[in-house]
Amino acid sequence: MPSSTSSSETRPRPLKYIVGLLAALLIAQTAIQQGATWVMRHYGKNETRWAAERAAANDLKHDGKGVLLMGSSVLFSVDPDLLQKKMPDWTVRRAVMVGTFYTDWDYCLRRLTREGLRPDYVVIVALPFQIFGDSFRGDYLPLHWIDRADIHDLARDRHLDLTAETNLYFSSINSFFALRDDVRGALMNAFIPGHRSLIVLASAGTRVYSDAEIERIAGDRLVALQTRLAGQGTRLVVLRYPAPGMDAHWAVVERAAAARKIPYFSAIDYIDKKKFIDPYHLGEQGTQEFTTLLAPAMDAALRPFRAK
């Protein structure tokens, strides 16, 4: 059948081949999208975990003791079951948003509170650069964390061009498009040695912020978030997460929070580097230790507000 002499220039090709090609492309595209989305939804750790955390967070109602820990993947360093056990007077829930920054939490909280979530406290658990950095989760955001109605506001806030904004709208109607980064990551991790290490390396921040910039940006953001949450009867609290090498940035964020009367607390300022499995995340033992220390510190930080 293959013919090296058949020139595309000389032999007229009937329309049926075009229709066939378009059909093949459409079928293959649909199969990949549906298949990959189904696999990610049912077997993807992040997808199943988020669904469970989201459902659990729905229990939180204004009763003076509902606490939602929200933040980036460093929140994996908090064991929610152990924390709840150690804080019996509180209802503690965790919402880990992997690879996220302030913008992601902000829009996610807008969506979740609009959908009825009512925690008494939202405790932000993240790295300092995730509070003042200008990144966000990109096309994944509309899958769970932002309302379609808020996309235009996000585009305006983040100065996105029309292409990036259109992609976000597309993500809000096509789950595969939103998930494609995760699908690619899963495939690459499975088949290409060292992919995860390379990506961690590649995703390290590049922009350098001055202390004045950090204080201004972090302060403005925390105030904006606090104001928005206060409208729902919720109080914002910031936890200092003890990742190594972050002290200088935390000091500035703490100053910004203090100047604006945003509650800020620390469970422990320093944990031995050996207990981290990578620059940011604690291993199993470190997680248990940090959670054990976090419980009394958080209780002490929140209780004064509860009394009021």
Binding site: M1, P2, S3, S4, T5, S6, S7, S8, R13, Y17, G20, L21, A24, L25, A28, Q29, I32, Q33, A36, G138, D139, R180, D181, V183, R184, L187, M188
Partner: peptide, 25 residues
């Protein structure tokens, strides 16, 4: 390019699958 239509269609579908699954986002 100079092969039969089916070869070319297979090539296009292969490229599209690779783009769908491996495109840096």
């Amino acid at each position: 390019e100079k092969r039969h239509e089916l070869w070319r269609a297979a090539y296009a579908v292969g490229m599209m699958c690779a783009v769908t699954l491996f495109a840096a986002t």
